[in-house]
């Protein structure tokens, strides 16, 4: 479709402005992170002599290294668990007929509609009773079930040609073997896409770690940044360096898998 010339001009101007609103803050953050300490408060857009000092101070004089480690480790463990548990449930919904299947499926999908805020008090009490408060357990275990993973993977498994799975079982393969030898290898693209969104989701998580983490042994990057901001950390150079570290994984994934990331976010309805 071809818009008229004047609409084209207006459209490009508006979009350039919007893109500027995205890119300018990024440039400001980037440049501040690489500015030497005495330039951090100047309004110059670029550092005169870029330096890594801010990153050095960030890791040397705060617990940020621990926060980064906690976030990375718990996110990786959590995502692996989420994928495994999601694949199992998706396979059951896609390949078995059993009594109450549709009702159970509705309960699983319905859980997507329930935001964490509604369940936080009892889970918080539970974590305290289990002595999981301020540990990795609290970050990982309550988040292992992933309705969106069950939903997306079930759709993909159902779209497999049934000959493929039936042939495997004709050869005498049980469900367990079929699942890991036939289904999972063919789920590659779906699993990759899902990994990206649940990884970013977990990495960026704010609400739950805010409640259950307290010390450097479990606190995550996002909550660490909040702590710096609210405790009036005046070292804005280091703070901007922290922002960059916190954003790196998501940005890197986006650069590598741009199309897929955008498509998956849209089809899953997760708004980040």
């Amino acid at each position: 479709m071809q818009l008229s010339r004047s609409w084209m001009v207006i459209g490009h101007v508006v979009l350039l402005l919007l893109c500027l609103s995205v890119l300018l803050p990024m440039v400001i953050v980037l440049s501040t992170a690489f500015k030497p300490m005495n330039e951090v408060y100047s309004s110059a857009l670029l550092p005169s002599a870029p330096t890594l000092d801010n990153f050095g101070r960030l890791f040397a004089s705060t617990a940020f290294g621990w926060y980064a480690w906690n976030t990375t480790a718990t996110t990786v463990l959590r995502v692996l668990g989420q994928l495994a548990i999601g694949v199992l449930a998706a396979y059951a919904f896609a390949r078995f007929a059993f009594r109450g299947r549709d009702a159970i499926f509705a309960l699983v999908i319905g859980a997507m509609m329930i935001p964490q805020v509604l369940t936080m008090l009892p889970i918080y009490i539970m974590m305290a009773q289990l002595n999981w408060f301020d540990t990795w357990w609290a970050l990982i275990i309550p988040n292992l079930a992933t309705p969106i993973a069950v939903f997306l993977l079930r759709q993909h498994i159902m779209s497999f040609p049934s000959e493929l799975l039936d042939a495997a079982q004709m050869d005498g393969a049980g469900h367990w073997t079929t699942l890991w030898r036939v289904v999972v290898p063919n789920l590659g693209p779906a699993l990759a896409a899902l990994t990206i969104i649940i990884f970013i989701d977990s990495w960026n998580e704010y609400f739950w770690p805010l409640l259950v983490t307290e010390s450097p042994q479990s606190r995550t990057i996002q909550i660490g940044l909040r702590e710096f901001l609210q405790e009036g950390m005046n070292d804005y150079g280091a703070l901007m360096a922290g922002i960059i570290v916190a954003s790196l994984p998501a940005i890197a994934m986006f650069l590598f898998f741009q199309r897929r990331v955008m498509d998956t976010f849209v089809s899953s309805g997760l708004k980040g």
Binding site: V22, P25, I28, L229, I251
Partner: peptide
Amino acid sequence: AVLFLPTLISFVVVGVAVMWI
């Protein structure tokens, strides 16, 4: 692609940057 970037970045990052600006 550029308009989609803010979806990926955590709101903490965005919030800290806004507070700074």
